[in-house]
Amino acid sequence: MNQMLVSLLPVFILLGTGVLIRKFSILSGEAIDGLKTIIIKIALPSALFLAFAQADMGIENFWIFLLVFLLCAVLYIIGGLLHTALPGLFPDEYTNGYFTGFEFGMIGIGLFTAIWGMERLPTIAMIASGHEVFIWFVYAPILTSRKTGSIKIDRILKDFFRTPTTIAIFLGFLMNVLHVFPEISSVIAGQALIHSLEMISGVLAPLILFIIGYSISFKKIPLKKSLVLILSRWFFVLILGFGLLHLIKIFLSVDEFFQLAFYAFILLPPPFILPLYMKEDRPAEISFYSELLIYYTLISFAGYVVLMSVI
């Protein structure tokens, strides 16, 4: 219990600090936008590069990559089926976009490293690798096509290779599979570079938690619709996630921390990029999902408290 409090209390203190920063106008919205830029373009890519460069990408873990990719695909299909079969409960066109994906970048990394430390990040990064491929090469292109009416492969590749986070993932993965990272780590210049990236990554968790706290506004959104969406996503994610983990444990050798990291991964909220891909002529839907994601994030934090108390 004491160790759980030691790990969790700093998270809630940092969240509360973010709330106070907004309440007392300590930082302006422009300053917060500047912090977001530092996270997205510098701190997050640094952490992702180190995580994917050091993650276990052995052939055995290819099956984890594939199964997590399929989990995301199945959740997307379930969201679409619910919208088609039960339009009264799931009226929004973007129900499938909400049902799948996990906010690994802006929430997962910050929350995971704040609780379990940066040195544990490669474990959840290995779990998330199939998810990242799904998001950038399936999820984002499909939502873009629904918004613009077409899928442009060249645009997808351009977006992938000009986004700092995806570049970092690609380079880290490349160095991993080519076994270059140990070579870099063996020379002084490489050690200095890695240490610099570790120092930059160290600011990621507190900055993310500050910004989440700052973003909490508790704007009113339809209660019934919100509960239906939150509870139904949790139901399908947890049922499928538990089943998938059981399957992994049967066929692959995974340790207890891998299981904890997997639970931590599936507890994450839907992708924060969802509102950005919605059609501009749906302002009410965009506003609703933007707020819903904040509420879901807070419930995810509660899920982490439960996770730490039972495992």
Rank of each mutant, 00 (worst) to 15 (best):
Ile200Phe: 06
Pro271Arg: 01
Pro283Val: 03
Asp255Ile: 02
Phe24Gly: 11
Leu274Ala: 01
Ile13Gly: 13
Gly172Val: 05
Pro91Cys: 00
Phe69Tyr: 03
Glu132Met: 12
Leu174Glu: 00
Ser7Phe: 10
Ala261Gly: 00
Tyr263Met: 15
Leu238Met: 13
Asp154Tyr: 13
Phe170Val: 06
Ile208Leu: 15
Leu67Ser: 12
Gly29Gln: 13
Ile299Pro: 00
Ile21Asp: 10
Ser217Phe: 13
Phe262Ala: 05
Glu291Asp: 11
Met106Leu: 15
Arg162Lys: 13
Asn61Gly: 01
Glu93Met: 12
Leu298His: 03
Ile169Gly: 03
Phe134Asp: 04
Gly80Trp: 04
Ala31Lys: 13
Gly105Arg: 00
Phe251Gly: 13
Val228Cys: 04
Gly190Arg: 02
His83Ala: 10
Leu245Ile: 06
Phe218Cys: 09
Thr166Ile: 09
Ser217Arg: 15
Ile294Lys: 11
Leu274Asn: 02
Trp116Val: 02
Lys158Thr: 10
Leu71Gly: 06
Ile230Ser: 10
Leu70Glu: 05
Ala261Phe: 00
Val177Trp: 00
Met4Trp: 11
Asp255Ser: 03
Leu171Val: 09
Gly16Thr: 01
Glu198Trp: 10
Phe160Ser: 07
Met57Asp: 11
Phe181Tyr: 12
Leu5Lys: 05
Ser215Ala: 12
Ile239Asp: 06
Pro10Trp: 01
Pro122Asn: 02
Ile40Tyr: 15
Ser145Cys: 14
Leu71Ser: 07
Ile135Asp: 07
Thr166Lys: 11
Leu70Trp: 06
Leu247Asp: 08
Phe265Asp: 01
Gly97Gln: 05
